Amino acid sequence: MTLLPHQSDKRFVVWTGMETDLIFNQGIDLPGFASFPLLEKEDTRLLLADYVKRQIDLAARHGIGTILESVTWMANADRARALGYNEQGLITVNRDAIGFLAEIRSEHDTSNVLISANIGPRRDAYTADQTMSPDDAESYHAAQIASLIGTEIDLLSAYTLSNSPEAIGIARAANKLSIPCVIAFTVETDGRLPSGQQLDDAIAQTDAATNTSPVYYMINCAHPDHFADKLSGNTRIRGVVVNASRCSHAELDEATQLDDGDPVELAEQVAGLLRAHPALGVFGGCCGTDLRHLDAMAKRVGAIQ
């Protein structure tokens, strides 16, 4: 069995930027920014499968592991209701998303491939939603997390969280079901969470309230320039999943064209972070990135001794 990143000296590449690639590069409409409905149509299911297979192949080519993220970031009750999904429909969607990845993984060398159930925030990831207490967040997210019982997931990754109370609730819900949980906070251009909290403080608060149940933390949906100076000394941060653009979240929300940055420059920045901070074992691309960015990152990171 492949060890999780915090248990292994391997590095793992991950991709959470598929939605921007689908919209801007593939011309596919994603109502509500949700990609999970694509599993229900044969042509788009095949497109998703191609993405996954290419990610596995590029990781193998560069001698690193890969984490496959399910398309379930938006597959919670509030976000999916407008798309016509009820409670049972969401259970089916979440389980199918993991089964889809497991089937593809079974066709490859599975020794370096992990499957992650991707959980997103209840509301807008770019705003400081402080309306939920940790107890409310635990109760809310428990339904999606419970739907994963019995599937072939290796871990659960809660991405693009803007505040620590929601992170605490998700971590508690996962811990009660004995599912390894990763918490990924997003930060603004100043390196702080959208709530204004310092990253280190958010991690410390979450750890204190959960008896350090998250297996590790990550930063995602931000450019390296926004957080590079926040990594020193915090070995609980084990991953960086970066945006291609240096734009703020507000600017990205208003963008009508994709800013895909410079894949080679971004890859060098990510490799530099991993060289400077050996605790980092997970890296990859978020908004604005595509498989070019992942390949460039994997090539540079794979060459690090």
Rank of each mutant, 00 (worst) to 15 (best):
D136Y: 06
N76P: 01
T131G: 01
D200V: 06
A171Q: 12
V52G: 08
T92S: 14
A228Q: 12
H277L: 07
L252H: 06
D135Q: 13
V301E: 00
L258C: 10
C221F: 03
T72N: 10
M74A: 15
E188Q: 14
Q198S: 12
Q205I: 13
C287P: 05
T127N: 08
N220S: 07
V182H: 02
K53Y: 07
L114R: 00
E42T: 14
Y51T: 02
A125E: 03
A255C: 07
I304K: 00
G285H: 09
E87N: 14
P263C: 13
H249F: 08
T127P: 04
V71S: 02
P180D: 10
L252T: 11
N243Q: 08
V301Q: 02
L273A: 10
R275S: 11
I179N: 06
D154I: 06
P165D: 00
A204W: 11
A250N: 04
G120F: 04
P121N: 10
H293F: 10
Y216K: 05
M132G: 05
L38H: 09
G285D: 09
L231F: 06
V264Q: 05
A158R: 01
H223T: 12
E107K: 10
T235E: 14
L58P: 05
V93M: 15
V182N: 07
A255Y: 03
G150F: 05
K41C: 03
I179L: 15
N118G: 04
S245D: 08
T256C: 05
E69S: 12
S111Y: 08
A34E: 09
V113W: 00
F24R: 03
T206D: 11
A60T: 00
D29P: 01
V264T: 07
F283S: 01
P278V: 01
Y51H: 14
D129H: 10
A255F: 02
R246Q: 11
V14I: 15
R95Q: 15
V301T: 00
E251W: 03
Q269D: 08
L68W: 03
R54D: 12
R79E: 07
T289R: 04
